[in-house]
Design a protein around this nucleic acid. Sequence first.
DNA 1: AAGTGGGTCAACCGCGTACCA
DNA 2: CTGGTACGCGGTTGACCCACT
Length: 220
Amino acid sequence: MGDQPAEEAPSGADKSIIKSGGGGGGEEVEVRKGPWTMEEDLILINYIANHGEGVWNNLARSAGLKRTGKSCRLRWLNYLRPDVRRGNITPEEHLLILDLHARWGNRWSKIAKQLPGRTDNEIKNFWRTRIQKKVKDGESGECASQMIAADDAGGSCSHGGAGCLDGVMTTAQPNFPTYPNAVNSAGAHGHEAYAPAYSTPESSTSETYWNFEDFWPMQS
DNA sequence: AAGTGGGTCAACCGCGTACCA
DNA sequence: CTGGTACGCGGTTGACCCACT
């Protein structure tokens, strides 16, 4: 993998200079922002496999990643962890999210703990893009709860299919980290990269996409 | 065929909390 | 007890793709 040079500045990637902490050191460190590259992921995964997670700022420095500890932590927790489940929210999960949100509100991390393999970020996005919108629509049409309940039951409400989730939460996808590099070669946006690979298995072996499950055994 | 708007997702930012010296 | 540092969480933004006009 090392033969493919990591693009120092993939589209959207940004660099900035920050002062490293420690009070008085004043050492300036270049920090990368934006989408993660495959090489960065490899470095992070390798480092955590060897040293374990935690102490993120130190980890970022030691691993040679030009990222903040925060960024490393986020990337690991949301995408690189082996137990992260990517893909569509199942009806059961949907129901659970609704229930837990009704109980706890926007305590996404708390809710995520009840959904093995799901991340707070994923649940948060799901809520904002699917449920919140639907509730909003329902406010004008007075049947938000009906719509949600109908969706959970695999049915539909009088609002029709505009916000219907039925079609999108039936299958779970395996882990497929995404990269801006893949965008360049495949002409697809990062988060879309795994979708065609998933729906058309014959294309999943393309060098453009790489299966996370293929990758993990390498770490041990 | 081209342009526009909406939807989705990944990543960043700021704040609060916990821990340690 | 106080100050500093790191971590974790929730909110927000930016970029891209797809569907519709």
